[in-house]
Design a protein around this nucleic acid. Structure first.
Length: 422
RNA sequence: GGAGAGAUGGCCGAGUAGGUCGAAGGCGCUCGCCUGCUAAGCGAGUACACGGGGUUGACUCGUGUCGCGGGUUCGAAUCCCGCUCUCUCCGCCA
């Protein structure tokens, strides 16, 4: 959420910067609401001050009954006026909030301007895609032929876009979670484990709601299945004032993630590139504003380290304004090379939200004792999506005989297994 | 699921025959003093939000906020109603 005061003070700049995301935008209704809000608040406060003065006059013991009655009448009239104005302010503020909650974040100045993914900028490519002396297969073929991925079973129990892991596949899922968490913890992240369902406020806090309601699974009791651990972990500090000495706070969290994928009919229907439930290790940071862009760089490096250790070729892409997520001020995607699909595919998305989420979730810190609290900056990134990591391991590690080589770093987590064979 | 207790500032904790309570006291923190280190002591300060003025985050004025919402009243942290949450005991349970 953007700051109302800032938007009202710099409307042209906000319009201009938001317009780089594509689509048209007219802030004039918001500006009009802002003016009405201010007028109503001023009048309400002035009327209250008047009533307060009358109340004070009441304490004068020398009043005659007539005078008392007159004061009572006047005060009551003011009270009615105040009630009216209070209703008006509340109504206007709700409208303002409605507009603000649906406004995306301002892209940072360093974000390349563009309309879609083709305008994204590749920052670096790390590792070299392997050359094959056979035609590399896609992950679902490999996984099914090895008996470690079972899409048929998943369809039977949960429907389309789910996957069942078996045997070393199931163990691989578990091994990767442990491997990633251990790596991040060794680099300064605190491991945290949170619920997979959250209350509505959390979803609003991180920006999934109200705009993207159709993407979320809703349980009964107004609980939502989390689409990423970002939601519960970021909301861990909702409503708090943190001490400057606590910052930066860095968390690593493993969780299942649930997504309806409502807008992606027909996309990635084969395999498990796009499924309704996957597991992910998420990195979340709470930092002082001055440091958030450095922290963004180091966040990506931390995610990249997983790929380096797993010997997977990847590239880092800076999303252009048109491709940037709703809440992000800047976002780097990490794309892993998939020889079976002959394509780079997103395996991590690392964003700096600046104070966009912090304002929604009211997460602040005190820069120094005695100073006024300020909003923190929040960041998060996948470190990594486990399902897609398995895809990458299968496609990059496949060998002519149908087996898959497991990278060195992962073997201790798989009880020393070096290859997964049929 | 049953019974009871409670929700006050960064934390702890006073405050119920309604007014001068944003709220005693303590802790913590900040600044200063004192003490030749340390510890102790003394003094001052220390909530957040919104709106106005302004040297436009110094400062200043106004208003609101004692879990949330509503009611009574000229006026409510204090009275009434509803809700939410937390804790304790019992039951059930991975």
């Amino acid at each position: 959420m953007l700051d109302l005061k800032m938007v009202l003070e710099h409307p042209e700049e906000v319009e201009q910067r938001l317009s780089t995301r594509g689509g048209s935008l007219d802030l004039s209704p918001l500006r009009e609401l802002g003016a009405r809000r201010r007028a109503a608040i001023t009048e309400r406060d002035n009327t209250r001050a008047e009533q307060k003065a009358l109340s004070d006059a009441f304490r004068n013991p020398g009043l005659t009954p007539d005078q008392r009655e007159e004061l009572r009448q006047r005060s009551r009239a003011l009270g009615e006026r105040i009630a009216t104005l209070e209703g008006e302010v509340a109504r206007i503020e709700e409208e303002v909030r409605d507009v603000l909650l649906n406004l995306p974040n301002l892209p940072h100045a360093s974000v390349p301007v563009g309309t879609d993914a083709s305008d994204n900028v590749v920052l670096r490519t790390v590792g070299t895609p392997r050359t094959f002396d056979f035609t590399p297969r896609e992950h679902w073929e490999i996984g099914e032929s090895l008996g470690i991925l079972d899409f048929e079973a998943a369809r039977r129990i949960s429907g389309a876009r789910f996957v069942v892991y078996r045997d070393l596949g199931a163990r691989l899922e578990r091994a990767l979670a442990a491997f990633m968490l251990d790596l991040h913890v060794s680099r300064g992240y605190r491991e945290v484990f949170t619920p997979f369902v959250v209350q509505r406020d959390c979803m609003v806090g991180t920006g999934q709601l109200p705009k993207f309601a159709e993407e979320a699974y809703v349980a009964t009791d107004d609980l939502y299945l989390i689409p990423t651990a970002e939601v519960p972990v970021t909301n861990l500090h909702r409503g708090e004032i943190l001490e400057a000495s606590q910052l930066p706070i860095r968390y690593a969290a493993w969780s299942a993630c649930f997504r309806r994928e409502a807008g992606s009919h027909g996309k990635d229907v084969k395999g498990m590139t796009r499924v309704h439930q996957f597991q992910k290790v998420e990195l979340v940071k709470f930092v002082a504003p001055e440091t958030s862009y450095e922290e963004h760089e180091s966040l990506v490096r931390d995610a990249e380290e997983v790929l380096v250790r797993l010997e997977l070729p990847y590239r880092v892409v800076s999303l252009c304004t048109g491709d940037l997520g709703f809440a992000a001020a800047r976002c780097y995607d990490i794309e892993v090379w998939l020889p079976g699909q002959n394509a780079w595919r997103e395996i991590s998305s690392c964003s700096n939200f600046e104070d966009f989420q912090a304002r929604r979730a009211n997460i602040r810190y005190r820069p120094a004792p005695g100073e006024k609290p300020r909003l923190v900056h929040t960041l998060n990134g996948s470190g990594l999506a486990i399902g897609r990591t398995i895809i990458a391991l299968l496609e990059n590690g496949q060998q002519a005989d149908g087996s898959v080589r497991i990278p060195q770093a992962l073997r201790p987590y798989l009880g020393g297994v070096e290859t997964i064979g049929p």
